[in-house]
Amino acid sequence: MALHFHKMHGLGNDFVIVDGREQSVTMTPELARAIADRHRGVGCDQLILIGKSDKADVSMRIWNHDGGEVQSCGNASRCVVALTGAKTIETPAGVIEGSSAGSEVEVGIREPRFGWEDIPLSYAMDTSDLPLAWDGLKHGFAVNVGNPHVVFFVEDPAKVPLDVYGPRIENDPAFPERVNVHVAAVREDGIHMRSWERGAGLTLACGTGACAAAVAAIATKRATSPVAVHMPGGTLTISWKPGETVKMRGSATHVFEGDLDLEALK
């Protein structure tokens, strides 16, 4: 069986996107993991399956590189808007809105949630200043923007061994659904950050992570809206006011499309 796909990326955060409206697809964690394999499959951070929806223009499901399904992905949302022209997308985290803005795409991510049970955390604690530490990383800010994030404001994100801290924090029992981990610094030109995504590892950019970092910086009065969030793969502009949804604007790039022989993955 041949599976038609599109390869896209948002600031280097790359996706294999399959349009299930045009072909019959039964996606499983095993198949998603095989397609995402950079040596034996197409290779990507996340596998995206577009489908029909009675609540929005299209629906979107997301599988991480490790085959685990997640609720939200900001960079992928922009890519789906760019690919399909959809104005609304139904995700497991709710319906989001999107629109093209010249060469960029803007999407609205759900209103942030800050309760410990919303992140979720294993027990009650102050999510704006977590009473937890992983060696030199402490005073984390936890927020859910459709998926769970913890942001650490540091002097220099480039000097943090995120490949060491990332998996430790992601899989810490304090986070029963695991967590995305970010280190960030607020400078004159905006927020500079690096990300460790649950189920994917180090990525060049994380859309919802950029939203989480911006929300954390604005909530703690380190920054004002809108704010530029700079990541190794590029820059997003994030806008947010308390009580409102988060808006994210940035590029969405189509690289190529093709047909994958699923038998070759076995």
Rank of each mutant, 00 (worst) to 15 (best):
M1N: 13
F5I: 08
L11M: 12
N13V: 04
D19H: 03
G20I: 04
E22Y: 08
M27W: 03
R33N: 05
A36R: 07
R40P: 00
R40T: 10
V42N: 02
G43M: 11
D45V: 07
I50C: 10
G51L: 09
D57M: 12
S59G: 14
W63D: 00
D66N: 12
S72M: 15
T84S: 10
E90M: 03
T91P: 06
T91M: 12
P92Q: 02
A93E: 04
A93Q: 03
G98Q: 05
S100T: 12
S103E: 12
E104G: 01
V107I: 14
R110W: 00
P112I: 09
F114K: 04
G115L: 15
G115P: 00
D118V: 05
M125E: 12
M125G: 08
D126G: 06
D126A: 12
T127W: 05
T127F: 05
D129V: 11
D129S: 15
L130S: 08
P131E: 09
A133L: 00
A133N: 04
W134Y: 14
D135G: 02
D135K: 14
G136R: 13
A142L: 04
V143K: 06
N144S: 14
V145G: 04
H149C: 06
V150H: 01
E155C: 05
D156G: 03
A158V: 08
K159V: 03
K159R: 14
K159L: 13
V160Q: 11
Y165C: 00
E170W: 02
F175M: 04
E177M: 15
E177W: 13
V181M: 01
H182F: 03
V183R: 04
E188S: 15
I191L: 05
H192S: 08
G201P: 08
C206V: 04
A217D: 03
A217Y: 01
A219T: 14
R222V: 03
S225F: 08
S225V: 07
A228M: 14
L236D: 02
T237S: 13
V246I: 14
V246L: 08
K247P: 08
K247T: 15
M248C: 06
R249H: 00
S251D: 14
A252Q: 01
D259F: 15
D261C: 12
L262H: 11
E263Y: 14
K266I: 00
